[in-house]
């Protein structure tokens, strides 16, 4: 008879390559939340998220914006007295929620991540104007005007190219990607 896997175990499997200790080692000391520069934008603090995962509150965790607000500064990972790689856990939760297709509506993160990866695979480098539509309309007309002003300023100073640039040896780069992701013609 199979025993049903707990949410905490599922996350542990997604994090199997993490160099940190398992998240079940959490002491609930709150150092991660206290040190997190993005905590004020999160609906649950990192400490609460770890507590919720260990207690099996899967729906609450997946519905939260915590891991999508993570700025990946790794301050929590560095300071965690239990040696948990908390920033890596945030990435694991992002992957898990995209895999299961269960995340908050209207988040910038998932769409932004997909556009970014697609852009890198297509051209080998980042081109900001293509990424802009994923977030530019989120802050109302004033935000839009502000973004456009910044972009114009950058363009006038030659910091933002008008057309996307491709890297040299793009074909070799794509072959390399295909070695990692087995889609397309075998290399």
């Amino acid at each position: 008879m199979d025993i049903e896997m707990s949410f905490s175990e599922e996350i542990a499997n997604v994090m199997y390559a993490s160099h940190g200790n398992p998240i079940t080692d959490c002491l609930q000391c709150g150092t991660c939340s206290g040190t997190c520069p993005a905590a004020e934008f999160m609906d649950h603090t990192p400490r609460t998220i770890i507590g919720l995962i260990n207690a099996g509150y899967k729906d609450e965790v997946l519905a939260s914006n915590t891991f999508w607000s993570c700025a990946s500064c790794y301050h929590c990972t560095v300071r965690c007295p239990a040696g948990i790689d908390i920033a890596d856990m945030m990435y694991a939760l992002k992957r898990y929620s995209m895999w299961k297709g269960e995340h908050q509506e209207g988040l910038i993160g998932p769409v932004f991540a997909q556009s970014f990866v697609k852009m890198i695979v297509d051209s080998g480098r980042s081109y900001e104007p293509l990424l802009a539509p994923t977030y530019i309309f989120k802050n109302g007309p004033r935000g839009l005007v502000q973004e456009m002003q910044t972009a114009t300023g950058l363009m006038l100073k030659g910091r933002l190219p008008l057309l996307p640039k491709k890297i040299k040896g793009l074909k070799k780069f794509r072959n390399m990607v295909r070695r990692i992701i087995p889609i397309g013609e075998p290399t």
């Binding site: 895999w99 990866v117 697609k118 992701i181 889609i183 013609e185």
Partner: peptide
Amino acid sequence: GLREQIAFLFPGQSVHPHF
């Protein structure tokens, strides 16, 4: 379930084994 998860990267292309 590779196609379902990251096919947006390679629309319409096949997944291949031979590892």
